[in-house]
Amino acid sequence: MYFEIYQETRGLMSATGGQWRWRLRAANNEIIASGESYRNKQDCLAAIALVKNTNSQTPVRGV
Results as ranks from 00 to 15, higher is better:
M1G: 08
Y2I: 15
Y2S: 14
F3V: 01
F3N: 03
I5M: 04
E8N: 11
E8S: 11
E8I: 07
E8L: 10
T9E: 13
T9D: 08
R10Q: 11
R10M: 09
G11T: 06
G11P: 01
M13P: 00
M13A: 15
M13W: 05
S14Q: 11
A15K: 15
A15E: 15
A15P: 04
T16P: 00
T16R: 14
G17V: 02
G17D: 08
G17I: 04
G18H: 03
G18A: 07
G18S: 01
G18D: 01
Q19A: 09
Q19K: 15
W20T: 00
R21Q: 09
R21H: 10
W22T: 04
W22H: 12
R23P: 06
R23Q: 06
L24E: 01
R25C: 15
R25Q: 09
A26R: 05
A26G: 07
A27D: 14
A27I: 09
N28V: 09
N28Y: 06
N28P: 03
E30F: 11
E30Y: 06
E30M: 09
I31R: 09
I31T: 15
I32K: 03
I32T: 10
A33H: 08
A33D: 13
A33P: 02
S34W: 06
G35K: 01
G35C: 05
E36A: 15
S37M: 08
S37G: 14
Y38C: 04
Y38R: 01
R39V: 13
N40S: 08
K41G: 07
Q42Y: 09
D43L: 10
C44G: 01
A46D: 13
A46M: 11
A47K: 01
A47S: 13
A47Q: 02
I48K: 00
A49D: 10
L50R: 15
K52P: 00
N53M: 10
T54A: 05
S56C: 09
S56L: 08
Q57I: 00
Q57P: 01
T58M: 02
P59H: 01
V60G: 03
V60A: 06
V60T: 04
V60I: 13
R61I: 11
G62N: 04
G62R: 02
G62K: 06
G62F: 05
V63K: 15
V63F: 13
V63W: 12
